[in-house]
């Protein structure tokens, strides 16, 4: 076990009925960093998180969480804060009752911190959970996660459905959490702009497989976006075009950087944004055959990045 890893998944596969929800998923996050988990709806982000939390059984592979191989000791959950895209508290509880209810389960529960966070987030302790807006509910879940002094924060699409102001606040809160070097974050989202600010590492999932994992810079460097006329991007270009999108006036696709030089001068080749990478990879029809190029690729899990202060 590597104690310097916040978590690691190695060759994890998980079945869902007769198909695989995850297949041979491998990636890891060093302690002290933020990993963004991106992919379209149904890519396997939530399943990956559920496997990591032991809420979804795996059929193959190995999971390591905070230095313990799964199934990890139950006590390890003291160190993991979980924020999902929905609350999992009784709607009729008032926020003061949330604290009374959860406090007995956590050895390091800090009631003063909880009340301070409620105050900072503008949450009324007398309010009921069911009366909170979506943004407020997310803040409540983060307040809970931070009040038991978690070392690893796992957020599953916490920003989806939030207005830009709430999203910005939430990203700021996560940034503050990371001021402690022992803290790490796994942040699943399909809003890639969230990760522009705080993402150190990225893992791109598609069809239950890891398409690419590595530092944000490595992933941005791994692809190029190509633009051309409607007929410029077809099978004759000689390289694999990822997620081709055509309109009446032009076409756009993603290519691997090492193949970009093979393209003719008729097309425009540019560095992509995270959004473009996510969109083009998400636009691909999921390939389940093991011979697909992206599937054969060994996930790049080099850990050379340093967190950007």
């Amino acid at each position: 076990m590597s104690s310097d890893l916040a978590f690691a998944l190695r060759g994890v596969s998980a079945a869902a009925g007769n198909t695989f929800a995850l297949r041979d998923v491998t990636f890891a996050l060093p302690t002290g960093y933020v990993m963004g988990l991106i992919g379209a709806n149904g890519a396997g982000k939530t399943t990956t998180i559920r496997c990591l939390l032991g809420m979804y059984p795996i059929d193959a592979g190995e999971i390591e969480l905070l230095g313990h191989r799964a199934p990890e000791p139950v006590a390890l959950r003291q160190d993991v804060g979980v924020v999902l895209d929905h609350t999992y508290l009784v709607g009729d509880w008032r926020l003061v009752e949330v604290e009374r209810t959860l406090r007995p389960f956590y050895n390091r529960w800090d009631g003063a911190r909880y009340r301070q966070l409620l105050d900072e987030f503008g949450l009324d302790p007398r309010a009921k959970v069911k009366d909170l807006s979506r943004g407020m509910a997310m803040k409540l879940m983060i307040a809970v996660a931070l009040s038991h002094q978690a070392r690893l924060l796992i957020l599953d699409e916490p920003t989806s459905g939030l207005d830009p102001v709430s999203r910005d606040e939430l990203i700021g809160i996560v940034g503050d959490f990371l001021l402690d070097e022992g803290h790490s974050v796994l942040f699943s989202t399909h809003i890639t702009s969230d990760l522009d600010r705080i993402g150190d590492y990225l893992t791109i999932l598609h069809g239950g497989r890891v398409v690419r994992t590595g530092t944000k810079d490595e992933i941005l460097e791994a692809y190029r976006v190509v633009r051309g006329g409607p007929d410029d991007l077809d099978d004759r270009v000689g390289v694999e075009l990822i997620g081709v999108r055509r309109t009446q006036t032009g076409a756009q696709a993603l290519v691997r950087t090492e193949e970009a030089d093979l393209l003719s001068g008729d097309v425009l080749v540019e560095p992509p944004t995270l959004e473009e990478i996510a969109v083009h990879i998400g636009a691909r029809v999921p390939h389940r055959d093991p011979d697909h190029r992206a599937d054969r690729r060994q996930p790049d899990s080099s850990m050379s990045a340093r967190r950007v202060a």
Binding site: V74, L76, V82, L84, Y88, L89, L102, Y106
Partner: peptide
């Protein structure tokens, strides 16, 4: 309320 998720998240 989805408390099964809460049970899975709590140290229980």
């Amino acid at each position: 309320a989805g408390l099964e998720t809460l049970y899975a998240v709590l140290p229980l």
